[in-house]
Nucleic acid binder design. Structure first.
Lengths: 250, 250
DNA sequence: ACCTAATTAATTTCATGAGAATATTCCTGC
DNA sequence: GCAGGAATATTCTCATGAAATTAATTAGGT
């Protein structure tokens, strides 16, 4: 039967904005809310590569029409987080080997640049705040679930970028990090000893000591550690494919 | 009166694309074509900051409905090339001072990174091809119109980025360049002696000599030259505003 | 005459339905 | 029992009309 797509007539409807009215107008953009929701869902691995996105379901969930959802999907596609196949639907993107390599390389270079900026712009207070974030990470690391671990880990880098004081670069890095979470999801082999929190702490230490060289070296090491967890060879990406999973039981 | 929004019934309509039909299917995505058209129009300064974008007009021009135009506008907005004001319409973006500074800085850093990559990846043939592009620039520089000059100038940097072999960074740079064209449009004071072609040629020379340091130094100088053409002080951005223009006649 | 209020016009925004393309199911024939 | 094909169902795609909002214009009052 038809899904009970209950949608208010919209008419002179109360619109619910009577609540605060002129307040938080920025967040009232449903399209943006959908975009952010999906982006973070992808970023924290809740939506795995290749999964099909039903626009009807999303429209239902947010109480809007498919048109609005479609808008959000469009920008997500242009961010390379989704793929829309003509008349087939939209799926969570599955970055290929080449793209993965490019993303890793771009991230390496970007983080270097960001460290330079942080040393130029960041105050001692800001570095302290950053250090507190690593404390939180460490706490999660011991008795935390898998998900919040990766989320926090990515967050560190974005917050670090923010300290660089360049909104453009921050946005770029956060988008790359999001795409890389897809790469990890596809190609990660073993999630061994996660020493991310430790690395982060060391990096903050180097920054506080105003030692750019050291910070960059540590960052390189940290990123190499992450890259070491994946095997970028053709055919690896299909590991979680239905057919590939079957092979494990043959 | 109503604009003669003549739109074919769509039905089993010939669709007018019967011209080549199954050919170029990749470009057949009208949304993407609209996006590219507007992006390049903005990039080459044909669409100035603040100009209002009429979705009806575009829909008309491309023979599609507003819905698909709207999709294109959405991603252009997420690229910071357009601004959509609630229920007011969409306008060509007017980057503020802070954004402009961030863009310049990001570009400086990025071009440095790209030069490193080019020295690592580019072959001699590719550098030759790049040099040919500067020849073309020089030719345009002498007896060319103003528009194609700036277009070619931006193209050099994007092609250079492509030689770096990293598609991710190339895309990022080209987006930044596009946004910077808006900045120039808003804040450029004098378009004096355009020695861009010369700078480009020198950079290629340094690259051929495998001298990274020199290439980066030249790039810095080149970019500083561009940044020197603008004055990033508050209130400059409204120079072309209706009110500001009036002041010139008071 | 000028400022304010009300009406009109133009434009955006969105929900919806109809058409198109693909996936799935079921049936028939070998 | 299985392969091939028709019928069905699901889902995307897009054009269109209706509601909502803002800008423009006109009327009215002090």
């Amino acid at each position: 039967m038809k899904k009970t797509t209950r949608r208010q007539g919209a008419k002179t409807a109360p619109k619910a904005n009577g609540s605060v009215d002129a307040a938080e107008n920025a967040h009232d953009d449903v399209t943006e809310r959908i975009r952010i929701t999906l982006a973070t869902a992808i970023g924290e691995g809740a939506l795995k590569p290749g999964v099909k996105i039903l626009e009807d379901a999303i429209a239902d969930h947010f109480g809007v029409s498919r048109t609005v959802v479609r808008g959000a999907l469009g920008v997500l596609e242009s961010d390379h987080l989704l793929e829309r196949k003509k008349n087939r639907g939209t799926f969570v993107a599955e970055p290929g080997i080449e793209e993965a390599k490019a993303l890793f390389e771009a991230r390496r270079k970007l983080e270097h640049v960001i460290l330079e900026l942080v040393l130029d712009h960041a105050t001692a207070d800001q570095l302290d705040a950053l250090e507190k974030l690593t404390d939180e990470e460490e706490h999660i690391h011991h008795h935390g679930d898998e998900k919040s671990k990766t989320v926090l880990s990515g967050k560190f880098h974005v917050v670090l970028a923010e300290l660089g004081g360049n909104a453009v670069l921050t946005e770029i890095l956060s988008k790359i990090v999001a795409r890389l979470s897809l790469v990890m999801s596809l190609y990660e082999e073993e999630r061994k000893e996660d020493c991310g929190a430790d690395h982060h702490r060391q990096i903050v230490g180097a920054l506080k000591a105003k030692d750019l060289e050291k910070a960059q070296r540590l960052m390189d090491h940290h990123l190499a550690d992450i890259e070491g967890r994946v095997r970028l060879t053709e055919g690896q990406g299909d590991r979680h494919t239905f057919l590939a999973v079957l092979e494990n039981f043959s």
